[in-house]
Structure formats: structure tokens, C-alpha cells
Amino acid sequence: MHGQGAFATSRGPLPLRRGRAPSAGPVRPGRRAVVHDLRTGADTYGDPAAGVPPAARSGAGVPELRYPAHDVLVASGLPGSGKTTLINRTVAPLDDDGRAVVRIDSQDMREAWERRLPGWLPYALYRPLVRCAHYAGLHRALRSGASVVVHDCGALPWVRRWLAWDTRRRGRRLHMVLLDVDPELALEGQAARGRGVSGYAFGRHRRAVRQLVAGVAAGRPPAGCASAVLLDRAAINALRGISFE
């Protein structure tokens, strides 16, 4: 349940400590806490099974998220929730080693194909080719050893399983930033960009993201993820940077 948890003790569960701390410094997910719930007014969680206390931070004014160089970050949430905008606005182009941070967004691949093909050709006809090209690019990015940020719709668990397996075998870690945005706002975001998904597809995304948010809010990162950060609209707007050090 949100706001509760337990330390590993021999005397039974104890409530997790709550508290607020200055949020002027960066947050490094996965170091002291595996889950950071940075939504407005929310507390963050540690890992009760490992006896890790919660991070004493609120969602107000977190300026930057910092991850180890060469790790992989997945940005997940509803279509239209602002994942692409967040990535483009906050992700630093270089890591602290001076290497380029690779951004993988299926929308970029779709638009690249659309520019090369006749406008009258329905996207449904070449969508399988776009997806193949997208996953081939993701594979190349993972193989390069660079720090990678991946746009994820949240409705394809097999993609995260693949990422978790690949990062683990390469001695890296997988992290998630999860956008908790009202479905109505997400639909408005789709309308603003002039591109949406069907009602059926949006319902599927909504169910998948709801499960992800519930797990992270309870202090459990998705399977295979070393950390998870939960953001609402206010926290998204307050976040100024995502970097790899």
C-alpha cells in the first residue's frame, strides 16, 4: 500500500520512515533506494526485502536524475504522456566520459520512413518494416556499450525482458522512468501532436501502465529493473536534466 513498507528485522515489520529533505541536489536512482516516487506530495521507497530505508525526498524541485554511464534507461508511460518531449528536453547529449548518449524512439524511425515513402501509402502497410528497423537500431545501440535511453510504450513487457537480459549479460543495469499522467491529459497530448492510437490500443496501454504504476508506487521496480522513478506532470515539468556519469 502506498506509503507503507517494512524493514527486514527479526521482530516483525516496522513502518517505513517518512520525511522530506532538501531537493536541491541530483537524485541517483538505485544507489540508496531502488524506487523514487517523485510525484507531488509523494514519498519515496527503499527495498524492504533488502532492509533499505526509503529515500527522504519529495517530488518538489528535483533538478536532475543521474545514472551510471553505459547503463540503459527506459522512459515508459501512456501514448501522449510526454515521453518523447521529456527525453528531448532533459537527456544530456554526452555522458561524463564524453561519449554520445543514444536515444531510441520508435516515433523517430516511423517519421524517417514516412519522409522516404509516398504520403498516400498507409502506415499499416509498412509498420512491420518500421518495427524491425526500430529493434535493429536498439540492438546496435545496446551492442555499442553507450549509455542508452529507450522510449517505451509500456504495453510490451517482452521488450523490457529483452533489455533486462541484455544489460545483465553485458554487466550493465536497466532503469525506468515512469510517467504517471492522467489518461485525459495523454489523449490531449496525442491530439496536440496530430497522431493517436485506436481506442482498443489505448485501453491496452492504459491497463499495462496502470499495473506498472501500482507496482512502482508500492516500492517494487519492474522485473529486471535496478531502479524506477515515478513522475507526475508537476515532477516532469520540474525535472531539468537526465545524465549519465
Rank of each mutant, 00 (worst) to 15 (best):
G98K: 12
H70Y: 10
L187E: 14
T9I: 02
R172P: 04
G98W: 14
R127L: 10
V209R: 04
A155K: 09
Y126V: 05
L163M: 11
A133I: 00
Q211K: 09
S106D: 12
E111T: 07
L179Y: 01
R170M: 08
A214L: 05
G203C: 02
T84L: 04
T44C: 15
A8K: 09
T44Y: 00
E64L: 10
R206N: 09
H134C: 04
D166E: 15
S10P: 03
V35T: 06
V34N: 09
W158M: 12
T9V: 09
G215P: 10
L125T: 07
T44F: 08
A191P: 01
Y135H: 15
R28S: 07
R28D: 00
A192M: 11
V216N: 00
P118G: 13
H175P: 05
P79C: 10
G189F: 10
V35Y: 05
R11Y: 10
V149M: 08
R20P: 01
E188C: 10
R20I: 06
N88P: 01
P26R: 07
G189H: 12
R110W: 06
A24G: 10
A214H: 11
S144F: 03
V72Y: 13
V216G: 04
S106G: 14
R11Q: 10
Y135C: 02
A218T: 02
G41L: 13
L117Q: 08
L125I: 11
D182N: 14
R140W: 12
Y45D: 06
A33W: 06
T84N: 13
E184G: 15
F244V: 00
G19M: 11
R140Y: 03
G224I: 03
A112Q: 14
G224Y: 06
G80I: 13
R206S: 11
G171I: 06
A146L: 08
R32Q: 11
R193I: 07
A6E: 12
G98R: 11
L185R: 12
L212K: 06
P26C: 08
A214W: 01
P48D: 08
V213C: 07
A6H: 15
H151R: 11
Y200C: 03
H175A: 02
S58P: 06
V27G: 09
P128T: 07
G189D: 07
L78R: 15
R131I: 08
R131G: 14
G241C: 11
R233C: 00
R18A: 13
V52H: 04
V74C: 12
G77E: 07
P157C: 04
S144T: 10
R206L: 15
